[in-house]
Write a protein that binds this DNA or RNA. Structure first.
Length: 340
DNA sequence: CCCATTTGACCGCA
DNA sequence: TGCGGTCAAATGGG
């Protein structure tokens, strides 16, 4: 069903994404220049604007009719007291390529959250994407049948110390040697600063001080944008292929807040510097050159050409949400929509 | 020494 | 039973 978002909304979206595109260009330009305090600061503001805009756009996208089912599929860390995972935690998804062409419906069972992102490899020939702003510790590597390259398993460095459940899997794309598929599982609950212990308060501090590393910020941004693209593409595809589905809105349409401090991730541990011997200069790493803009362009195009914005079912709703939040029941969602 | 990675074994689910 | 995911001992680097 066409909605308010249909006509005027889409135009607005297009407009906003256009602005985002522009902002990204500026950001890119800034990043190319030598990193001095001023430019870093400007980068922060740019990122802030970009985030705000995209956030708003996403908000529009998922603001369907007016029904907010009180079902809370994304209660982030809805941990019922220490959860039972004392020793082993198993979360199973089939993150990479789900051959199934038919969109299987997956109830939003309180699985773990995850997001998939495709990022470019580190510069020149490094092995693995650039730093994403979190400190990870590799705990395993496996050869995956059908895949040319092994999959690496990482977990938050602070898992032991802070019980941070965040994990990620990194696998080089079969085809593109320069691209890596990264699947993030769980949400970071670790707290970076931890300065002056004092009272034991702060359970899950989601906000943190922003750090001066624009790279980390950009990384996160890029990840989000990439995801957003995916979402847009999925939405477009859904719109084109599927007839109207179960209407249902994404709960938690709270104000766009998780982004208080600019570049910082919506959570985060200490953010150390890049893995390569170049902190901020070249960004030769994940190639902002074309990639970042490409991402934005894709999103732009997707929304621009999108047929009536689809009404999304649970799964796609999750998609919408995970676009800018850390909540996404990936499971069988999106077969191979990401990247052509 | 401490900490991160490596690497094969182990284990649970489909 | 096979595959994907995790554990943990060994190893290497700062």
């Amino acid at each position: 069903m066409a909605d308010a978002v249909e006509s005027g909304g889409r135009a607005l979206l297009v407009s906003e994404l256009g602005r985002v595109q522009d902002l990204v260009r500026q950001l890119e330009q800034q990043l190319r220049a030598p990193a001095d305090a001023a430019s870093v600061d400007l980068c922060r503001r740019l990122v802030h604007q970009i985030v705000a805009l995209t956030d708003h756009s996403i908000g529009m996208l998922r603001a369907s009719p007016a029904d907010l089912a009180p079902s809370p599929p994304l209660s982030a860390t809805g941990s019922p007291i220490s959860g039972g995972d004392a020793t082993s935690d198993h979360h199973h998804h089939h993150p990479f390529r789900a051959a199934g062409a038919s969109p299987k419906k997956r109830k939003a069972t309180a699985r773990w959250t995850s997001q998939q992102v495709r990022v470019s490899a580190a510069g020149g020939g490094a092995e693995g994407p650039a730093d994403d702003g979190h400190s990870w510790r590799k705990y395993g590597q496996k050869d995956i049948l059908g895949a040319k390259h092994p999959r690496a398993y990482y977990r938050c460095t602070h898992r032991n110390s802070q019980n941070c459940p965040a994990t990620k899997q990194v696998q080089r794309a079969d085809d593109h040697p320069a691209l890596f598929d990264v699947v993030y599982h769980g949400e970071h609950t670790c707290r970076p600063p931890a300065a002056a212990g004092g009272s034991g308060g702060a359970k899950r501090a989601q906000q943190q001080q922003h750090n001066p590393h624009a790279q980390a910020a950009l990384q996160g941004l890029a990840a989000r944008l990439t995801v957003a693209t995916t979402t847009a593409a999925a939405a477009a595809a859904a719109a084109a292929a599927l007839p109207p589905m179960t209407p249902e809105s994404c709960p938690v349409r709270g104000a766009s807040s998780p982004w208080s401090p600019v570049g910082s991730d919506s959570n985060g541990c200490l953010q150390h510097q890049g893995v390569s011997p170049c902190p901020v200069p070249g960004y030769g790493d994940w190639a902002p050159e074309g990639d970042l803009q490409e991402v934005v362009s894709s999103a732009f195009a997707a929304v621009s050409s999108a047929a009536p914005l689809p009404v999304l079912d649970d799964e796609f709703m999750s998609l919408e949400c995970f676009a800018f939040d850390h909540n996404f029941d990936i499971d069988t969602a999106m077969p191979s929509l990401y990247y052509p």
